[in-house]
């Protein structure tokens, strides 16, 4: 199958994300990359747990003072929903419905921006209300690095989606572009899974004390 070939919904293959060798390679390579990313985040989590609440004096805010359920719960819901909408997008990709795919990706991107906005608000809140900064304690360094790394991944994922959507808005789906969308959505799911762990390990366990 030629990558640039034109398709109709009838001729569109069942797994367009891996029906050329290039696509198969990309698919597998990306999964492996996510394996590496998993170790990367595991390392950050381990460090965070080692440095949690490790502050130089008694006047520093600790995890239980900082985190508030409503905000992080809202962020979690937004990001989880965005994962769902990206699944819808991939569903339409598999059905060769480019318009609907773009629409659901658009919704995904909006949700991603909402999440990122709330995260910025959250960090700002900690810095100004609690003087909990990147440099104020080892706890601060570990917290902002872990959550910030995740936030940077979200920002990168958004840039990626937008680039793909704009670049391919005219030419639609073929076996060259479909794997690109698919891989980007995999990345988005990964970010979501990492957030579930952040929500549990950092926020829930943090509020418990």
């Amino acid at each position: 199958m030629q990558a640039e070939e034109k398709f109709t919904p009838e001729t569109w293959p069942a797994s367009p994300e891996k029906s050329t060798l290039e696509a198969k390679n990309k698919f597998l390579g990306f999964w492996l990359f996510l394996g590496g990313e998993t170790v990367l985040f595991a390392t950050l989590f381990a460090t965070y747990l080692a440095l949690k609440d490790k502050v130089p004096g008694t006047d520093h805010a600790l995890a239980k003072d900082l985190f508030e359920m409503p905000l992080v719960f809202l962020m979690t819901m937004i990001l989880l929903t965005s994962s769902l909408t990206s699944v819808y997008a991939m569903y339409h990709m598999k059905n060769f419905d480019f318009k609907k795919m773009q629409l659901w990706l658009g919704i995904t991107v909006l949700l991603g921006f909402a999440f990122l906005g709330l995260e910025i608000y959250e960090f700002n809140h900690y810095v100004h209300e609690f003087h909990h900064t990147f440099t104020s304690s080892a706890f601060g360094s570990a917290f902002y690095t872990l959550v910030g790394f995740h936030g940077a991944h979200v920002a990168f994922g958004l840039a990626w989606f937008i680039t793909l959507m704009v670049r391919n808005s005219k030419r639609g789906l073929d076996l060259y572009t479909a794997p690109k969308f698919y891989v980007a959505s995999l990345y988005w799911h990964f970010i979501d899974v990492v957030w579930v762990f952040i929500f549990t390990v950092v926020y829930l366990m943090g509020m418990v004390g």
Binding site: K54, T135, S137, A138, F139, S141
Partner: peptide
């Protein structure tokens, strides 16, 4: 940052 600075809680 203070990851390794023990005076700031690092290790």
């Amino acid at each position: 940052a203070n990851f390794f600075d023990h005076t700031m809680g690092g290790n």
